[in-house]
């Protein structure tokens, strides 16, 4: 099972390293968001600390949408998705492979975006780096778990670029709220105990939606 999941992840990574389609568009988009908001607010001011979590997660989520769309479009080329479905592999494994690939791409973008964000907004992330990494990781897993399922769902629709965010964002509200609130508390130097409930909620969301998506993926990609 792990061998097959890794085969799908490795295939996506090699493919992306050659085409650079997903990462390039995601990086450009998230950098644009950071740069545009940087012109709006004075770096280091109090208002930046209030708005920063929102700015950061706008960049992450919208860049994530681009990545999710691209990741499934690449499977549409030459009907490769049919090649995957026709192989003797549990369709849940295909889901886990695609989801893991999406998580890796999103984490790369988030790392790059965080560095740019810290530089442009003059915010030091080091004092709360570990809890921030935990929040980003949990929210990214939640985002990719539902996003991979919905990206597969919208792959055959003509307006998939519009369809994916319409389907995804209502379900993602708990993750986005949890991630923004946790990041806000961290930026305001509040104790870790204050965000513990949000972290628990993100963890629960991840587990619930990975299990549900794993089980229903089979029906989503069926013709």
């Amino acid at each position: 099972m792990i061998k097959k999941i890794w085969a799908i992840v490795k295939k996506d990574i090699i493919s992306e390293l050659r085409s650079k389609e997903i990462l390039t568009s995601m990086i450009i988009f998230s950098m644009l968001v950071v740069v545009i908001f940087n012109f709006t607010f004075e770096p280091g001011s109090e208002i930046v600390k209030a708005a920063a979590p929102g700015i950061l997660w706008v960049a992450f989520t919208f860049a994530g949408i681009l990545g999710l769309n691209h990741s499934m479009v690449s499977e549409k080329e030459n009907s490769c998705i049919s090649g995957l479905i026709l192989s003797p592999v549990d369709r849940g494994i295909i889901y886990l492979g695609k989801m893991l690939g999406n998580i890796i791409f999103m984490l790369i973008i988030e790392l790059v975006s965080l560095i740019f964000f810290a530089v442009f907004f003059n915010i030091s992330l080091l004092p709360f780096l570990i809890p921030l990494v935990i929040v980003v990781l949990l929210a990214t897993i939640g985002f990719a778990s539902v996003g991979t399922l919905f990206a597969a769902m919208s792959i055959n629709t003509r307006t998939r670029e519009v369809m994916l965010p319409i389907l995804l964002f209502p379900v993602m509200v708990p993750v986005i709220v949890g991630a923004v609130k946790s990041t806000e508390f961290l930026f305001k130097d509040k104790p870790i105990s204050d965000i513990l409930n949000w972290i628990k909620m993100l963890g629960a969301f991840d587990i619930i939606f990975i299990v549900i998506s794993y089980l229903v993926f089979e029906y989503v990609i069926e013709e």
Binding site: I14, S15, R18, S19, S74, E77, N78, S79, C80, S82
Partner: peptide, 15 residues
């Protein structure tokens, strides 16, 4: 037990 050859290649262009 089956192999399929169609006009869709199922081949990844970037591999």
């Amino acid at each position: 037990s089956i192999g399929i050859i169609s006009h869709d290649s199922f081949i990844y262009n970037n591999l």
